[in-house]
């Protein structure tokens, strides 16, 4: 009797959560999957003509917009992830090797994490945009020469190239993604046994050898974790684009140069093109599942942390 009552009370404690999850997580997941495969779906009347892969054929077909956005997203992923991992590793190693002011530096490096990505995106766009921007000014001083980074009328031409837009976006994404990586790597570094370094000192190994032969291998679980999670995060990049470019999602209105997969999903949804939005979301879902499985596989292989 006692056990039965316990069972009941446990489910009562979970009841609100389960109801909310059923409505806002489980049901949406199933329905979104369904809508991705339903053809001519009308969400108002909940009717469809047939079940098939037509939505996927549209978004993945030859010369579709979605493929262009997928390319942009993949570029972001491939470039931003390695750069941010290497940079955060350098900073973490630097932080670990100093004795004074560590707290101050740590606090500074963590600041981008707690900021609003839309707000600071706007700051970056002010720093880059136009002839009179601080970045162009510094570049002119250094003799490199400025650039029309974010479009608009400019002495550098009235057109911002794909590369220059992408450069600003990548700088912002890396800037924003460093803190979390530094935090994880630093706590990993602090967990490394000092004996390894003492042994290296006796063998009078160079600092570079120590970094590549001791520090990086011993940090491999953290690096693998960060790489896979940032792959996932970078595939979902969206708010940094909105912060930098606004609703135009690119330098020039109507071109959506910097639109990502998630940007496409929301744009289709706003246009009430639900089927294609769902198909896009399923593609994203599959990509993320692959990386999640990869992450779980890697972390199971390296249990020593």
């Amino acid at each position: 009797m006692e056990v039965k009552r316990n069972q009941l009370s446990a489910w009562l404690y979970l009841l609100p959560t389960i109801i909310l999850m059923a409505i806002f997580t489980v049901y949406p997941l199933i329905r979104s999957f369904f809508m991705a495969f339903a053809e001519n779906y009308n969400y108002m009347t909940d009717t469809w003509s047939s079940i098939g892969i037509n939505n996927f054929r549209i978004i993945l077909g030859e010369g579709s917009e979605f493929l262009q956005y997928l390319k942009t997203t993949c570029l972001i992923v491939i470039i931003s992830v390695p750069i941010s991992v290497v940079l955060s590793l350098l900073i973490a190693v630097g932080l670990n090797s100093i004795k004074k002011l560590t707290k101050l530096y740590q606090t500074i490096f963590f600041m981008p994490y707690v900021t609003n990505s839309i707000a600071i995106g706007m700051v970056f766009s002010v720093m880059f945009a136009g002839d009179k921007s601080i970045v162009n000014y510094v570049l002119e001083l250094l003799g490199i020469g400025g650039q029309n980074w974010l479009g608009g009328v400019s002495t550098y031409g009235n057109h911002a190239s794909y590369v220059s837009q992408m450069t600003v976006l990548l700088i912002y994404i890396v800037w924003h993604s460093l803190p979390f990586k530094i935090l994880v790597l630093l706590s990993g570094l602090q967990g490394i046994d000092k004996q390894y370094y003492q042994a290296a000192q006796i063998d009078s190994a160079s600092k570079f050898t120590v970094l590549t032969k001791i520090t990086v291998p011993l940090l491999s679980p953290q690096i693998a974790f960060l790489t896979t999670t940032s792959f996932i995060g970078a595939f979902k990049e969206y708010s940094s684009v909105i912060g930098l470019f606004g609703a135009k999602e690119g330098a020039t209105g109507g071109h959506y140069d910097m639109r990502t997969i998630v940007g496409y999903i929301y744009a289709s949804l706003t246009d009430l093109n639900v089927g294609e939005a769902c198909a896009g979301a399923v593609v994203l879902f599959v990509i993320i599942m692959v990386f999640t499985l990869l992450k779980n596989f890697i972390s199971r292989k390296q249990i020593h942390y």
Binding site: F24, P28, S32, Y43, L269
Partner: peptide, 20 residues
């Protein structure tokens, strides 16, 4: 199962929740 839902990209849910 709860933990597993964390891996699903939120966009999957957002679309239907918008309709709801």
């Amino acid at each position: 199962m709860f933990i597993a839902t964390m891996m699903i990209p939120g966009e999957m849910m957002v679309i239907t929740n918008f309709i709801t």
